[in-house]
Amino acid sequence: MPIDKLSKSRPEAAENSSESRVLQLVGVPAGGRHRAKPDGAGYGPVFESLQQAMVTKVSPVAAAAAAGRRLAERGVALADALDAMQHACNTIDREPGYDAMRSLCQSWTECTFTYLSGPSCEDPSTGLATAQHLLSRLSDLYRTAMREVECLPETHVLVVVEPITRQRLDAELTTLAASVLEVFGGTVVGRLGSFRIAAVVALDAHFVERLGRLRSAIGYWPGPDRHSTTGNPRTKVWTEQLPTLPEWSESFIKDLTKP
């Protein structure tokens, strides 16, 4: 069955230590394995101000700093950020220069360590991932798709679950998240706002069957027969197609956190 048949219009914790997170961000390969680098073409919009500054012979330092912050917020490794800047400069036949590279590295570092010293990526009330951590997971998937020349919306989808009842909501969200993990396995389940959770799920050969199992398991309060799927509806379960470009993922997640 096509995925668009399943999609509905919206009805109205990281295990890594801080040290391993830093190593991942600066581009140190895990386990000594070679880590493929993107060619930088996917980050073109981030460097438009930098390119304009260079073409008009204005100092690119401020634009480089802004690009460093934006890439760090998306979870882009420092090595990849530098590669992306070099690629952007090559397209206009310019060299970034030491001052611009230093500015990008400095702003990237400040933004990254602000993130690492900031609030936990775990929601304190439920133990689920925060929306920011779910966004970080999406960034990882976009980079992987870029390296493998794939389109992420064709390989993954966001499964969203929202309880109808709003009593004892934190406990209900935790229970629903356990069901999502039981059905879909190793995925990140994040809390989006006060009333819903979501998980990024692979569109494999078993997706349709698993989504049906999830709806059967958590879609209803039990009726007279505890093993049936009849009774009063208790949850909304739907899918959201992921944005085509990673630049749109932040607003995509932000919209889903709204009631």
Results as ranks from 00 to 15, higher is better:
246 P>E: 15
59 S>W: 05
77 A>S: 15
81 A>M: 09
12 E>R: 08
36 A>V: 12
129 A>W: 02
97 G>Y: 05
218 I>M: 08
220 Y>P: 03
118 G>Y: 10
150 E>F: 02
194 S>T: 15
162 E>S: 15
98 Y>V: 14
87 H>E: 07
128 L>E: 03
175 T>I: 08
21 R>A: 08
190 G>L: 09
122 E>Q: 13
16 N>C: 03
132 Q>L: 03
3 I>A: 04
33 R>V: 07
175 T>Y: 05
173 L>D: 06
21 R>E: 11
129 A>Y: 04
243 P>C: 00
211 L>T: 05
133 H>P: 03
53 A>P: 09
158 L>E: 00
65 A>G: 15
184 F>K: 02
107 S>L: 14
36 A>K: 13
201 V>H: 01
60 P>Q: 03
123 D>Q: 09
76 V>I: 13
176 L>T: 14
46 V>Y: 09
179 S>M: 07
176 L>E: 12
54 M>Y: 02
145 A>V: 00
184 F>C: 08
237 V>I: 14
202 A>Q: 10
241 Q>M: 07
31 G>F: 12
11 P>V: 07
248 W>S: 13
102 R>P: 09
222 P>R: 15
61 V>T: 12
193 G>K: 02
229 T>S: 06
38 P>R: 15
19 E>P: 00
2 P>N: 01
98 Y>K: 13
228 S>G: 10
35 R>A: 14
240 E>F: 02
244 T>L: 05
26 V>R: 06
3 I>E: 03
71 L>R: 03
40 G>S: 05
52 Q>A: 15
51 Q>G: 14
159 V>N: 01
202 A>W: 00
202 A>C: 06
57 K>N: 15
197 I>V: 09
38 P>G: 15
218 I>Q: 01
47 F>M: 05
196 R>D: 04
187 T>S: 11
25 L>R: 14
195 F>S: 11
189 V>W: 07
43 Y>M: 07
121 C>E: 09
185 G>C: 11
258 K>W: 11
155 T>Y: 00
178 A>Y: 07
183 V>Y: 01
247 E>D: 14
83 D>H: 12
88 A>Y: 04
171 A>Q: 13
175 T>L: 07
146 M>R: 07
134 L>S: 11
238 W>D: 09
